[in-house]
Design a protein around this nucleic acid. Sequence first.
DNA 1: TGCCAGGCCCTCTTTAGGGCCTT
Length: 217
Amino acid sequence: MTDSRQQDASTVVVLDFETTGLSPDQGERAIEIGAVLLEGGRIVDRFQSLMNPGMRINSFIEHYTGISNAMLRKAAPCDEVMAQFADFLQGHNLVAHNASFDQKFLDSELGRIGRYRQREFACSMLIARRIYTNAPNHKLGTLVEYKRLQTDGVFHRALADAEMTAHLWLSLLRDIQDRYQLTEISFPDMRRLARTPKTAVDQFFDRHRRGRKAHAV
DNA sequence: TGCCAGGCCCTCTTTAGGGCCTT
């Protein structure tokens, strides 16, 4: 992957896991992965697969996701699916909604097969909290409705949530560029924005613009 | 449904507590 693609915030893999619970450290496992590859702001590829974690899921997860134990019994095992998904990632930068959650499961599942994550995550939730300060809350579904983003009405399935997160990510890029009159914002800048105090976002972009102008001169 | 975890973030804070998010 070239340096320019590593910098490009509109060329990323946006991913979402469905899991048996909240923490891989407590023995929870992934049960579905969904992801889209954005290149230059357009979805150019998709990855979706159920995976058999080798354990039964509880009724809450069945109800929450619509994924049943019967569906998982017929699915390929996690190690097989994750090996395919590692190839799909191809060293792209990564985006997820509440990325700390998906990062934990990605690292855990890749670690089980002796693979590792090559690139960093950016979090659409942390950035939305800074940019969409008037949203009722910053759940993915709420933000999709708030910004009237494209959705097929399916929630809590991996590919559907990954696609909605991708549209949210593109919406954030557009709105940041419009609001702060920027011609571009890089992936590392988006990661820095996610760690910027909410009260210092305007100053962050003031410094960003000054830096760009100084760089241009 | 809400607990399990954990990072973020706010405030009646920082020697803490609790809500927000993810499944």
